Simulated scan of single mutants.
Amino acid sequence: MSEITVRPLGEEDWQQYRDTRLTALRESPEAFAATVDEEQAFDEDFWRLRMTRSTRLLAERDGSPLGIVSLGRSDERPQTSELFGLWVSPDARGSGVATELVRAGANLARQQGQTQLAYWVGSDNGRAVAFASGFGFRPTADRRPMRVQGDDEDEVAMVLALGGDRGSAPVEF
């Protein structure tokens, strides 16, 4: 089996991001605040602008998309980047794709001089909490309502320290 590769997408890759994002929305509608109908209606200018607002990382094997995640900056915490929109194709789940996407996001944030990486996880989503914890993310006291439509669960901010000591406590979030 070929290696999983992760690469950042540029503005010129907007169609590939759009196609993968729409696939994610169709496959896992419960995981996103947006709907496939809403996003399918957006034009090229919207998608190009979206590509410039955050870094989009695409995981592939042999040129076929396996998953995506976005990396943005926190408005409130200038030294913190935030992972969001993580999705892995069902046939690639459990094969290390999510790990490679998060690792690439953490490395990119570190290269950009960030000291922390935040990842909002549904507090009742034991699998996601375990995945993030295993990666080194630690829960904070920060909570917010889940942004997914029709869900009354809350999300917890989990933070990964990007310094040399991954076991160090995150700065208060």
Results as ranks from 00 to 15, higher is better:
residue 73 R to V: 08
residue 143 R to T: 11
residue 53 R to F: 01
residue 121 V to H: 00
residue 6 V to P: 01
residue 110 R to D: 01
residue 125 N to F: 06
residue 137 F to K: 07
residue 79 Q to I: 14
residue 76 E to T: 14
residue 112 Q to W: 15
residue 85 G to S: 14
residue 101 L to C: 01
residue 69 V to A: 03
residue 94 G to A: 07
residue 144 R to W: 05
residue 14 W to T: 13
residue 104 A to H: 02
residue 100 E to H: 15
residue 100 E to K: 12
residue 127 R to Q: 01
residue 81 S to G: 13
residue 98 A to H: 00
residue 99 T to G: 11
residue 144 R to P: 03
residue 82 E to W: 09
residue 49 L to K: 08
residue 81 S to Y: 11
residue 99 T to K: 12
residue 152 D to T: 11
residue 107 N to C: 00
residue 44 E to L: 06
residue 155 E to Q: 10
residue 54 S to P: 00
residue 30 E to Q: 15
residue 127 R to K: 05
residue 58 L to E: 02
residue 9 L to R: 12
residue 45 D to M: 07
residue 154 D to S: 12
residue 5 T to Q: 09
residue 29 P to F: 03
residue 20 T to M: 11
residue 90 P to L: 07
residue 65 P to T: 14
residue 60 E to D: 05
residue 56 R to F: 02
residue 167 G to Q: 08
residue 19 D to H: 06
residue 146 M to G: 08
residue 81 S to E: 13
residue 8 P to A: 15
residue 138 R to C: 01
residue 131 F to S: 08
residue 103 R to T: 14
residue 117 L to S: 11
residue 99 T to D: 11
residue 16 Q to R: 15
residue 120 W to K: 07
residue 2 S to A: 15
residue 70 S to R: 13
residue 164 G to A: 15
residue 95 S to Y: 03
residue 158 M to V: 08
residue 42 F to N: 01
residue 24 A to I: 00
residue 127 R to G: 03
residue 43 D to P: 08
residue 25 L to Q: 05
residue 157 A to D: 04
residue 114 Q to C: 09
residue 173 F to H: 01
residue 129 V to K: 09
residue 63 G to C: 12
residue 27 E to Y: 03
residue 164 G to P: 15
residue 111 Q to C: 03
residue 152 D to Q: 13
residue 24 A to D: 06
residue 119 Y to Q: 07
residue 148 V to S: 05
residue 127 R to N: 03
residue 45 D to W: 03
residue 37 D to C: 06
residue 147 R to P: 14
residue 70 S to F: 08
residue 72 G to R: 15
residue 158 M to T: 02
residue 15 Q to H: 09
residue 130 A to M: 04
residue 134 G to Y: 05
residue 27 E to G: 12
residue 27 E to S: 13
residue 95 S to H: 10
residue 136 G to M: 04
residue 56 R to P: 00
residue 16 Q to N: 06
residue 12 E to T: 10
residue 88 V to T: 10
residue 26 R to W: 04
residue 33 A to W: 00
residue 5 T to G: 12
residue 54 S to F: 09
residue 48 R to T: 03
residue 6 V to M: 02
residue 165 D to T: 10
residue 97 V to N: 09
residue 155 E to G: 07
residue 87 W to I: 02
residue 107 N to Y: 00
residue 19 D to P: 01
residue 163 G to E: 04
residue 142 D to S: 14
residue 95 S to K: 14
residue 133 S to F: 05
residue 80 T to C: 11
residue 86 L to F: 10
residue 27 E to I: 11
residue 7 R to P: 02
residue 118 A to M: 13
residue 41 A to Q: 12
residue 78 P to A: 10
residue 61 R to N: 08
residue 167 G to W: 04
residue 33 A to H: 00
